[in-house]
Design a protein around this nucleic acid. Structure first.
Lengths: 340, 340
DNA sequence: ATGAAAGCGCTAACAT
DNA sequence: ATGTTAGCGCTTTCAT
C-alpha cells in the first residue's frame, strides 16, 4: 500500500491523470505514453488502493453471494453442491481482484450499506430477499443463480442477470433415465416451488405425464431435511402403491427415500429406482450410491461472477438479457441399476 | 451511502470531528453531546462509509481467512469441519460489520495488497504461507487456528494470536476411550507433523505409550485422501498384527481404515475399534458410524474472529499472548461399541 | 493528448 | 470539550 499513483506519474514523467487513464484505459492516450506508464507501474510494483478507488466511484471492489436456502439461517449449508459453487465463485472473483463475501438471508439495509455491497449473486432467489430489493432499488448489479419469479421482475431497466441450469431438461433427463432403466411408474419429490428450479421440474413432470399418458404423482417437502422427506415418501407410496421409482430434487429426498423403501422390504435398485436432481458427494458415497444429475455448481458459481464482472461500467438496459445456461450431466450409480 | 458525517454534524449542531469522536468513542466528549450525536446519527440512518474510513486509516474492514490445507489448492475443502468453521467465522465477522473473504494458499504479495488485506486468520499454518509472512512483515494482525512452528515465530513483537484445541488432551481422550472400550493395542494414523495439531497428537501418543508400557505404532499419510489412508493402514496392520484399534486424526483415515479392516474379514467394532480425532458429518452418517472427537469448529472460527476484533488499535506487544483454547467433545458412535 | 484541480467521506493532528 | 484543517489515493470534469 506504499507506492501510489503519484510515484508512477513521477517515474513516467506524466501527470497522475494520465496514469489513471492509462491504467484504466479511459482517456485518449498515445500508445507510447501508455506503455511508458505501464512499465513504470510494474517497475514500481504499483497496486491500486481499492479504498481510494471505491471512495471516489462509490463502488467497493467487494462482491457478495447469498447462498443459504430461503428460510435457512446458516451461511453455507453443509453440502458439496454449495461448497463447490462457492469455491468456483470465490476463485473466479479473486482472480479478477475482487474479494467475495458470503451473506446470510437475513439482512438489514444498513448492514448492506455498511458493508458497501453494490454487486451480488443470489442463489435460488424468491424475490423477497432484502438483498435483492436493495440492489434493485439502488441500481446495484444483481446476478441470480436460478430465476426471479416473474412478478418480482423490476419494472424499470436494471442491472439484473440470470445464470441457470435448464431445469426442464434436468427433469427430462431424470425421468427418461428412470424409464430406460425399466421403471414404469415414476413419482416426483420436490421442494417449495417459490424456487424456479423446483417449479420448472414440476412443470416438466406434468408435461411428461401428459405426453406419456402415465400418471406421475408429485409430492413436496417444505424443508430439505431427511425426516420430512421420509414422511413425504411414505405418504406418497401409501397413496400410490404402483410407484416403482422416484425423481427427487434434493439430497435429503434421496437419502430419505432409500430408508423408507428399505423399511418396506424393497430393494434399491431392484424393486425401486431413485435418481436425484442435484448431485452431492453424499449421494456418491452413500450405499447404495445414488444416481444423480450433476448441475456443475462450480461452473454456476464461476459464470455468475463472470456475469457480474461483465456488467461493466456503462449502464446496461437489457433487463432481460438472455440467461447464461449451464449444462448438466447424469451420473449413473447403483440406485438405478435395475437387475431385473 | 448518502447521509454522511457532515449531515449528522449539522443536525446535532456540532463539528464533524465531534461526530467522529462520538461515534468511535475516541476523544473526550460530554455524555450529553455524545448522546445528541448518536441520536442524530440514528435519526438520519447514518452508516459509515468503509472506504473513506479505510482510506484514512490504511485498514480495510475486510477480514480474510485461509482455510484450505497446506498443499491443497481449493479454497474450502468439502468437509463439515471446514464448513462449520467458516460459517462460524463469517457470522461472527459479519455481526461486527466486517466482510470475511476466503483466500487460497497460493498468493502473491501484490494480490494481498490489491485486496487490502491487513487482518487474517490462517488455519493450520506451517509458517511458510505468503499470507503469514506478509502480515508479519507489514505489521498486520494474524490469528492462527493451530500454532505456528516455534522457529517461525517472529523475533520482534507483532500482532500474532493463537486459537487452538488442546491436541494433547484430544489424543488422550481418544486413546483412553479406546482403552475403556476394551481395546488393548491401539495404533495412531496421522498427517504431516508440520501442522501443530498432528504433531501434538503424535507426541501425546508417544507419552501414552511410555506411560502405559504398551507400544503404540504410529503411521503417517501425506495427503488426506482415502486411498493413501488405506495403504497406510494396510501397512500398519501388516507390520503390527496385534493392533486392535486405531486413533486416526483425519476423516479419510477413518473411512480408509474401515474398508481395510473389513477387507481382512474383521468386524468393526467387534474385532477392531476406530476413533477419529476430528468429527465430520460424514463420520456420523457412514456405516458403521464412527466415534470421533468434535473439535467445535464453529467455536474455533468465532473465537478467531473475536481475537482479530480484540486486537484493537494500540500496537500490541504480547507476541505470545496465551492462546485461546477451545474444548472438545467425544462423540461415541458404533465404531467403538465393542460387543465382546 | 495531457494536465490541474476538485473532492469522494473520513480520521487525526493540532488548535482553541 | 469541541472545532479547524490537512490529507489518505484515487477518479473525473474541465482546461489547455
Amino acid at each position: 500500500m506504499r507506492v501510489s499513483i503519484a510515484d508512477v506519474a513521477a517515474r513516467a514523467g506524466v501527470s497522475i491523470t494520465t496514469v489513471s487513464h492509462a491504467l484504466n484505459g479511459k482517456g485518449r492516450i498515445t500508445m507510447s505514453t501508455r506503455e511508458r506508464v505501464l512499465k513504470a507501474a510494474s517497475d514500481l510494483g504499483y497496486v491500486a488502493n481499492p479504498n481510494a478507488a471505491g471512495l471516489r466511484t462509490g463502488q467497493s471492489s467487494l462482491f457478495a453471494i447469498q447462498i443459504s436456502p430461503s428460510g435457512g439461517n446458516s451461511l453455507v449449508p453443509n453440502s458439496s453442491y454449495f461448497n463447490d459453487m462457492l469455491n468456483g465463485a470465490s476463485a473466479e472473483a479473486l482472480s479478477a481482484g475482487h474479494p467475495l463475501v458470503v451473506l446470510p438471508r437475513e439482512l438489514t439495509e444498513s448492514e448492506l450499506i455498511a458493508l458497501g455491497i453494490t454487486r451480488a449473486i443470489v442463489v435460488d432467489p424468491i424475490g423477497t430477499e432484502p438483498l435483492v430489493q436493495f440492489l434493485l432499488e439502488t441500481g446495484g448489479t444483481l446476478v441470480t443463480i436460478g430465476r426471479l419469479p416473474d412478478r418480482m421482475l423490476p419494472q424499470s431497466p436494471s442491472r439484473l442477470f440470470f445464470v441457470d441450469n435448464d431445469a426442464h431438461a434436468v427433469a427430462r433427463t431424470a425421468l427418461s433415465h428412470l424409464q430406460s432403466a425399466g421403471y414404469r411408474h415414476p413419482a416426483v419429490l420436490t421442494s417449495p416451488t417459490s424456487v424456479s428450479f423446483f417449479r420448472d421440474c414440476v412443470d416438466e413432470a406434468r408435461a411428461w405425464a401428459a405426453r406419456t399418458g402415465c400418471a406421475v404423482p408429485i409430492a413436496r417437502i417444505r424443508n430439505e431435511n431427511e425426516s420430512a422427506a421420509r414422511r413425504a415418501v411414505a405418504a406418497l407410496l401409501d397413496a400410490h402403491p404402483e410407484v416403482d421409482s422416484l425423481f427427487t430434487t434434493s439430497e435429503a429426498g434421496a437419502i430419505g427415500a432409500v430408508s423408507v423403501v428399505r423399511q418396506r422390504g424393497w430393494v434399491v435398485p431392484g424393486d425401486f429406482g431413485i435418481v436425484a436432481g442435484n448431485d452431492t458427494s453424499l449421494l456418491r458415497y452413500s450405499s447404495p450410491s445414488i444416481s444423480a444429475i450433476d448441475l456443475h455448481p462450480d461452473s454456476l458459481g464461476r459464470a455468475a461472477v463472470r456475469r457480474l464482472l461483465l456488467a461493466g461500467r456503462p449502464p446496461v438496459t437489457d433487463t432481460d438479457a438472455a440467461p447464461t445456461v449451464i449444462g448438466h450431466t447424469l451420473r449413473r450409480r447403483d440406485s438405478t441399476r435395475r437387475s431385473s
